[in-house]
């Protein structure tokens, strides 16, 4: 069952990468980047459960945190036009 989930999440991630490139403005790109992080997080978790390796889930935790911090400070940087 997990084997069916894995390509779905990878496909959604690639779809959001395509939308990220196409997005009209920078704010849309940030939003699609945020969604790309979510689907990559799900891909890591499903892969970790498929191959039964536990420490991959720690990588998923760190990935979620770094994704959040990246989004927050990029949005702050853009909103204040360079003066954080």
């Amino acid at each position: 069952m997990l084997d069916l989930l894995f390509p779905f999440f990878v496909g959604c991630g690639l779809l959001f990468l395509f939308l990220l490139v196409k997005g009209p403005s920078i704010w849309d790109r940030l939003l699609f980047l945020n969604l790309f992080f979510i689907f990559m997080l799900l891909t890591i978790i499903v892969y970790a459960l498929m191959v039964e390796i536990d420490y991959l889930l720690d990588i998923a935790i760190v990935y979620a945190l770094l994704g959040f911090i990246g989004i927050v400070f990029t949005a702050r940087f853009i909103q204040r036009k360079g003066k954080i």
């Binding site: 704010w27 940030l30 945020n34 959040f68 949005a75 702050r76 853009i78 909103q79 036009k81």
Partner: peptide, 15 residues
């Protein structure tokens, strides 16, 4: 939180 920050940033930079 990240959705709020994105929305607030976009609105305040009058997008």
């Amino acid at each position: 939180l990240s959705n709020h920050i994105l929305g607030r940033g976009a609105y305040l930079s009058n997008y």
